[in-house]
Amino acid sequence: MSGVVAEHKGDGLMEATDRTFINMCSYSYLGLDSNPNILEGSLSALRDAGVLNSSTSRVRIKLPLLEDVESSLSELFSVNALTTSSCAAAACAVLPLLAAGFFTEGQSPLMVFDRSAHFCLNLMKPICADETQVLTSPHNDLNFLEDCCKKNPRVAYIADGVYSTGGVAKIKDLMGLQDKYGLFVLYDEAHGLSIKGKKGRGVVLEAMGGLNANTMIIASLNKGFGGSGGAIFFEKSINSSRLLCFGGPLSWSQRINTAGLGAILASIKIHASSEIGILQDRLARNINRFDQLVPSAAIGDGLPIRLIPMVDEVHAISAAAALMHEGFYTSPLFYPVVARDSPGLRIMLRANLRDADLVRFCSAVNSVL
């Protein structure tokens, strides 16, 4: 189901033709996509720079604004940060280098992709296989992963910090494997950034306390963060100049446009202020409220993604249609997005959902279960 829509009020209310509805598929977990300061940041950057795109690779010519964004982002999260046009572009830049041993002292590691890793990661498997052996592990199966570590001198594990269909990586346990075997871990933190942690540093960094030399993160700056594009977070032992030279899209792709960079700077200011904690608390209250009213296997995980099981694909589609009739847009998921026997209705919760709307939505969900 798709259509031309106009957004109103910044609370997820949308309009298509003569119908209004609340978008329950929005990734803007903190409601920052319509934050007035972020919008003004975009406009201010455009006025100051006088150009939307540089139309030249960043390794040749770049605006001072790009350096300001990356240094501010690095300082905010106590990492080294490079921005990319998207989280998928970050995966495209980093994974072939990881396969070639770029981050593992020149030794190509066995690459183990979690079965539930995001499509933008799995898409790179054939390219990585040109450099090294690639395996797929059962979801969150650390016994499988440890067995790989015992049999191979270097192993790299590719996973989501927060999975797009719900759930998290076993971050603390993975840190134990890092200490024991030198396991390298690449996390996709597209859905975890901003919603948790000090200054919104995300689920992975909050659990780890900070990056180590055997961990990299790719992240979306377009979801909870409320800006645009993506980013690569890495530890100081990794040479950023070499990463820029050899990291595919980092050298030959366009940068985030000027409006997006301005939005990121404005969001950084919010993340560095007390406002981020207020927004995180609002999100947590809405998650708890939903969990009180709708049963799910994920109750209590504190994450904004809920996948409600459906009987089959027809049930998922009909449930989504019924909810749309009640004024709520949701996303039915089935194979190949999820396993063949696990169709569901994906719901994304946000800080700026009004309680009355959330209660009404939960009532509607229960009516279609």
Rank of each mutant, 00 (worst) to 15 (best):
Phe361Lys: 05
Phe233Trp: 11
Glu7Ala: 11
Phe103Ser: 01
Leu174Met: 03
Asn122Ile: 13
Lys62Asn: 12
Ala16Asp: 09
Met1Trp: 08
Ser273Met: 03
Met24Asn: 04
Ile299Trp: 03
Glu235Lys: 12
Ala284His: 13
Asp188Ala: 10
Ser71Tyr: 08
Ala297Phe: 11
Leu221Trp: 00
Arg47Ala: 12
Ser220Thr: 08
Glu275Tyr: 04
Met348Lys: 12
Glu146Phe: 06
Gly200Trp: 03
Ala364Asn: 05
Ala272Trp: 10
Pro64Leu: 00
Arg285Asn: 12
Asp11Asn: 11
Phe113Ala: 05
Leu369Trp: 13
Cys149Gly: 01
Asp179Thr: 13
Val5Gln: 12
Ile38Tyr: 05
Val185Trp: 08
Ser108Met: 06
Arg47Ile: 10
Leu121Lys: 10
Glu146Met: 04
Asn152Val: 10
Tyr329Ser: 14
Glu275Arg: 08
Gly3Met: 08
Asn352Pro: 04
Asn286Lys: 01
Gly192Asp: 09
Gly197Glu: 00
Val112Ser: 03
Leu43Thr: 12
Asn23Arg: 12
Gly224Glu: 03
His139Cys: 06
Ser240Trp: 09
Asp18Cys: 11
Arg19Asn: 12
Ser240Glu: 11
Leu52Lys: 15
Thr83Gln: 01
Leu73Ser: 07
Val94His: 05
Ala117Asp: 07
Arg350Tyr: 00
Leu193His: 05
Asn288Val: 10
Leu250Ala: 02
Lys9Thr: 13
Lys172Cys: 06
Phe225Trp: 06
Ala219Met: 07
Gly12Glu: 07
Asp301Val: 02
Tyr157Gln: 07
Leu283Phe: 02
Arg115Asn: 13
Gly166Cys: 01
Val204Glu: 02
Asn143Phe: 14
Val59Trp: 07
Val94Gln: 05
Gly210Trp: 10
Ala169Lys: 01
Cys92Asn: 14
Asn53Tyr: 15
Ile347Tyr: 06
Ala272Pro: 08
Lys125Asp: 02
Leu279Lys: 12
Ser137Pro: 09
Arg306Cys: 00
Val365Gln: 05
Gly3His: 13
Thr330Asn: 04
Leu63Glu: 13
Asn352Ala: 04
Ile347His: 07
Ile127Pro: 00
Ala316Lys: 02
Leu32Gly: 02
Met14Glu: 07
Pro309Glu: 10
Ile256Phe: 05
Met1Ile: 12
Cys87Ala: 13
Met310Tyr: 01
Ser220Tyr: 03
His191Trp: 12
Asn257Pro: 07
Leu123Trp: 14
Cys149Tyr: 02
Gly41Glu: 00
Phe144Leu: 01
Pro153Asn: 14
Lys125Asn: 03
His325Cys: 14
Glu313Ile: 11
Ser240Arg: 11
Phe233Thr: 08
Ser86Glu: 07
His191Ile: 05
Arg282Phe: 06
His139Ala: 04
Ala263Val: 09
Ser55Tyr: 14
Tyr335Ser: 15
Asp160Asn: 15
Met310Ile: 02
Ser164Gln: 11
Ala284Arg: 14
Asp114Ala: 00
Glu7Arg: 13
Val4Arg: 14
Gly262Cys: 08
Glu75Ala: 14
Gly202Cys: 00
Ile270Thr: 05
Leu73Phe: 14
Glu15Pro: 01
Gln292Leu: 13
Ala16Gly: 09
Asn53Glu: 13
